[in-house]
Structure formats: C-alpha cells, structure tokens
Nucleic acid binder design. Structure first.
Lengths: 112, 112
DNA sequence: AACGCATATATGCACAGCGCACATATGAAC
DNA sequence: GTTCATATGTGCGCTGTGCATATATGCGTT
C-alpha cells in the first residue's frame, strides 16, 4: 500500500515551511530553522531538537531524503547533513498549498 | 499577563476551521465537525472525542465561549452546547488568515 | 413500561510530536 | 589543550489526537 498524498494533509505549519524551504534547494537542519523563521516573519518557529526529529519523520515518510551532498569547505563544526525534497514531498506540499489557497479564498467570501 | 495574539499562532488546521465556522455564527460541537469537513472538502477532519477536548481548550484559552443558547425545540437527544467566538478568537483567526495569505503569496513567487 | 435507535456530549488509554534541557561531535582561535 | 562557535542528537515530561467506550436525552415500536 503506497502512501497517499491526502494521508499527509493537513500539514503542520512547521512541516509546510520545511518543505517550502527545501523546494528552493538542498539545505541542512540548522539553516532550515532560519529559513522557517524568515519565511514566516518569526511566527512559525521550532525547537532545534524537535527539528531533527521532524526531519527524521519526514524522511521516514518519504517526503524528504538526505542528499549526500558534502560541503567543499568541511569547516565550521560538526558535519552538516543536507536534505532534499522528494517528488512525493512536492506533491504533498502542492496539495497543501491548494488547500490553503481555498481556505483563504473561503475566508474572503465571508463577513468579518 | 494577558494572552497575546501571537502566542496562538500558528493555529492548528482544525482550530482554524472551528473558529471560521463559529465566526459565521454560534454552533454546537457535533455540527462543527460537519462544517469543518464541508469547508475543507473533507481534508481536515477530527475525531469527535478530540473535538470536545479542543473546544474545552479553546474556551480555557479564551478564543471561544459557551453561548448559553438553548434550542427552542429541545428534542433530538442530549442537550446541545452552543459555542461562540470571542473578540480574542476573532483577533487570532484574523492574524492566522493573514499569515496564510502571506504564505500562499510567497509560494506563488517561487518556481515549482 | 421496556426496548432499541438516533443524536449528542464526555471519558480512558495509548501514541505521536513538541519544548526544554542536556549531551555529543567537529574545527578554529587563542 | 582549553575554549568557543557550529551543528547534530537524546532524555523527559506535557499536550493533543485517534480509537474505543461510556453517558445522557428524546422518539418510535412493541
């Protein structure tokens, strides 16, 4: 039984930001935190410990994969692990963004 | 110290749908499930048991309140409890919708 | 009255995901 | 070699959820 796209919807806000960041290119964990905060103007944040567990979960479920990329300059500290979005991850993210578009559109049609 | 709007962002998808439904008018628990499913085309669902606990939590945090409304026709079954969105709940929902608008707008500016 | 049925709210239990604190690994600077 | 900055990883308790079950209320049928 294959994983269905809809089985992962709705995405958690943090997962959505992780996938959006990875859709722009491979990234490593620590930098993903900054991307998430930047993209959400600081509204969506995540504990660094929870981040790595979230990345493990997204890998386990096939939405992302470790890219194997290594830094040309192996400096700075503990070796970075780079992640890439998978085709399935792109599918799920696209479906989630459609859901959000419809939600926003629905809210615009209502009195506030 | 008062509760800050941003302390509740990002909202869970289910909470967002509950607040959106209640922004249209008072509703009782069981009907909120259907509204959530309708508004999301069945993508966002919630267990009935989890729903009542979510409503308790939203009341505890001041986003909704029990309206005290009673059905004119007290039939059907166990008495319904009606909920209403509070001013604070409206604030949080509005802020969440702004967040989602920006997220969608950001995604549209990227290659896919 | 008693029973089943539909509606509606509520609770027990186990599991997943998260924040917080802490641990570990690697290289650079001093 | 000690300290610092970067980066990944782990232990623990709390919160929220799904699944199952319990409870409450009225109606219809017998």
């Amino acid at each position: 039984m294959d994983a269905k796209t809809d089985d992962y919807l709705p995405l958690r806000a943090a997962d959505c930001h992780l996938l959006m960041a990875l859709r722009r290119g491979e990234m490593y964990g620590y930098a993903l935190l900054q991307a998430m905060a930047d993209d959400s103007s600081g509204v969506v944040t995540m504990d660094i410990g929870a981040l790595y567990r979230a990345l493990d979960r997204l890998m386990r479920d096939g939405l992302i994969a470790e890219s194997g990329r290594q830094d040309a300059e192996p400096s700075r500290g503990r070796p970075r692990r780079y992640y890439a979005i998978t085709d399935f991850g792109r599918e799920v993210l696209a479906a989630e963004l459609v859901r959000l578009e419809r939600l926003v559109a629905l809210s615009h049609g209502e009195a506030r």
